[in-house]
Amino acid sequence: MIKLILTRLAQAVPVMLIVAILTFVLMKLLPGDPAVLLAGEGADLDKVDALRRELGLDRPLLIQLGSWLADLARFDLGRSLFLNQPVAEAIVERLPVTLSLAMVAFVMTIPIGIIMGMVAAYWRDSWVDTAVMSLALVGVSVPNFWLAILAIILFSVTLGWLPSAGYVPIDEGLWLWLRSLIMPAAVLALFQIGYLARMTRSEMLEVMDQDYVRTARAKGVSELRTVAKHAFRNALVSVLTVSGYIFSLLVGGSVVIEQIFALPGIGRLLVQAIMARDIPVVQGTMLFLGFMFVAINVLVDIFYTVVDPRVRYD
């Protein structure tokens, strides 16, 4: 098991390197010069040149890339150009917000998505199936920024039940924390619920046609147990894969929602950094998200061994 984790993390290194280089190249392709932005409007050219030299942006691209990678190897993500703090610190500061949002959305997604998928599969081709799957289709089709605005109008403006924006840290009270996250998390979860429900349904349909499900029925196992134990345990491997993917998306994909609900998370940091051409922050954040993807995949791999006795890594 430890060997598995170590090999997977080692395999992550080349992946991260590619992410690092791609991010670097993309940032260089973007129009806009950080030195100009940093110097401020109407600054004279000498000042901009001086800043550019100071930031090392006048050096050849390969040298810039090389020195950045060398810093990375020492776990140094560099300093933000605008925030006046190290990139690592900027990420760590905003991480709890993004993780909180992702967790709450994930906790909403998993049970609802799975149960919807199972219900639809069990009553396949009936009106129940049609109703549940239509709902799931709505979930994956409705743009979440639009839904977010509607939700704010209803729950914050009209009913006044929930705050329309802002984040409350968990140490100021569990309820206040949760209240600040319910709406953005629900909006975020809706798409994922639809996606998970569709995946679970198709996986369950496949599994319920298997011979061992018939064996369970022939033993006198009740319908509920047949579906929940014999069938679902076998569908779980795929559901787990999808769940890991969903969590990755939630951690990295909250950009729009964080923006609408004014949550100071990683997604918002990334967008602001791109706008400001704050290259070290963009690169650092992208790398961090890449690392999260790899880490979540390792976790999913470990869960496979728990769920399916046929999977072994030794």
Binding site: Q210, D211, Y212, A218, K219, K229, H230, R233, N234, R310
Partner: peptide, 16 residues
């Protein structure tokens, strides 16, 4: 009780 053909597929792979 019933015994089926093809015991590769008639036992549940994830239960002992």
């Amino acid at each position: 009780a019933m015994v089926f053909q093809d015991p590769i597929h008639t036992l549940n792979p994830v239960l002992n």
